[in-house]
Nucleic acid binder design. Sequence first.
DNA 1: TGCGATTGATAAAACCTTTTAACAGCACGA
DNA 2: TCGTGCTGTTAAAAGGTTTTATCAATCGCA
Lengths: 338, 338
Amino acid sequence: MKNTGDRRRTIYDVAKAAGVSISTASNALNGTGRTNAETRERVRRVAEEIGFRPNALARGLLSKRSHAIGMLTNDTYGRLTLPMAAGVSEVLVDHGVSVFLCATNNDPRLAQLHLEALLDRQVDGIIFTATRLDLEPPVQLSRLPIPVVYVFAEGPADSVTFFPDDEQGARLAVDHLKELGRSRILHITGPRDYLAARIRAQSYHDACGDGAEAMFGEWSEEWGHEAVQTVFARPGLKPDAIFCGSDEIARGAIDALRDLNVEIPTDVAVVGFDNWEVVARQTRPPLTTIDMELKELGHRAGLAILSLSKGEPVPAGITRLPCRLVVRQSCGSPLQSD
Amino acid sequence: MKNTGDRRRTIYDVAKAAGVSISTASNALNGTGRTNAETRERVRRVAEEIGFRPNALARGLLSKRSHAIGMLTNDTYGRLTLPMAAGVSEVLVDHGVSVFLCATNNDPRLAQLHLEALLDRQVDGIIFTATRLDLEPPVQLSRLPIPVVYVFAEGPADSVTFFPDDEQGARLAVDHLKELGRSRILHITGPRDYLAARIRAQSYHDACGDGAEAMFGEWSEEWGHEAVQTVFARPGLKPDAIFCGSDEIARGAIDALRDLNVEIPTDVAVVGFDNWEVVARQTRPPLTTIDMELKELGHRAGLAILSLSKGEPVPAGITRLPCRLVVRQSCGSPLQSD
DNA sequence: TGCGATTGATAAAACCTTTTAACAGCACGA
DNA sequence: TCGTGCTGTTAAAAGGTTTTATCAATCGCA
């Protein structure tokens, strides 16, 4: 006869069924205070039997910790956000913390509305995520009574922020190409006003030296296609490798190369960035690329907000998490397959 | 001097500042009970001044309605889920309802954990979403004290369920092709064990009659590519149009057609399914396709769970929401552009 | 036996809000 | 003058939990 009634079971029901006071019941269940081992067992057994589960609202009201956090994102498409959010949720559920998802659609009014709702709900913290388009978060986040962690977006000077390590990721790509004997490496990437694009390009320059050429454009296949056409149309030595700023760009580049009858990877090796499986797996040949470890990023952000919400110190500033090289076949290393 | 203290302002602070009892304050703020207009104004002004916001936990505890819902999804990649979730969140935030995001990763243990957390939080309802891979939800959802709405997944017989109207969507595609004078329409789609694939194929058969041929395979570019090669390699009349079960398949098909020097749309018109912009926009020519209106699906699901949680009746059974034809250039109608 | 210490259990307060019932004051009609 | 009805306000209870302070009983020891 577990929980057949219409009402949820309360700790009061447990206490009555176990013939004990509610304080004793509470102490027994939580292992707080002093309780006789035998009593404790009995209470716990009874609680189990009648299907008692503590009301998180009441608990949160008293403890002033709701064990919930909010995730504010302006990423409508979700290619970066959802894997990240899944990581956050995954790591926090084991700590009894749930995640409110708030999609702001880049609408400040909506962002404000969500933020107020989160505060009313006494969330223990907020994770703010933005695509790299507009790096500055809505101002209202600056002076909040709860901790904020930023991912893919830079907060105020002393805030806790997580990014993928674009510099290291780019280096990973270039080093891989060099190890395979490539020397004339071209870089095709997104718009110059994306911080990530600039960092990757800089890292590429540092690794390749003088001959290096970075072409800024769009985050699109079209741009990858166009850039390759441009480069192969002009006279002079052609690159023997292309490091692309995104998998989409890489895809466009590969298509263009095929149109030009350039053999991949024999004539030109290609590396992408994102490890966006639907793209990277479908290029011909499958794309060697850089994985930003979005889930791990979510884990770290989740753990950070958890610590902060408990008042534990977390090192402020930007933490950059290492990227990972995923080897497929576009560089001529078909030994490992993913 | 608004809210400079460390403590959050409570209704008690409002009452004291306005020189009134907390009951009067509550009545004034909520417009309940009898209150003098002048008092009401004063209380509201004071509340505004000191930045009072009611504690949702306390409110929920009393009203037994948390004004929060849970969204349980096993879609790791998020291509369907996140736009849908954004729709849910968008429509509910205006009603003061927030959304817990729970990614189950197809792990029953994780699903159970999330479910229990949601129940402990007294959520007013649950939206269950699955990719179409495993249509049956975890059993534990069957007998819950709160309403459940299913999206992309079929619940028990009398449950409230939302799907895109695959039948109408497929018809839309075929009709469009016919209107453009195409008569030999081929259908390339995903695995036969996906309900959506079967429905679309059936609709296609109904519209095209005897000559119709539906090829089941994978939801991948590769399959689209392969299917086209197969069809164009065998003798006999070639199709003058292809209706693909997904944009990815369409992309593969288009690539294969180009390899065969078949002109698109002159020789063969192509229609996709999903309107997944990153794919549909990047094919050459850009892909005419079917949009499943995921955000609208989210709106409807959100409104349904809202009504149910208020005890208002909602028609049970499967509701299929109409799809929309998005015309680009792969069928030879470049008049409208999206 | 008497006293301090320890153990085990409990009543009550606290968290913050809404709602019910009660109260004081006032005007009005009888 | 005395009920009657209305208005504006308030005290108190309720919601479910944790925590603090208190209390009763037992134990060890002088």
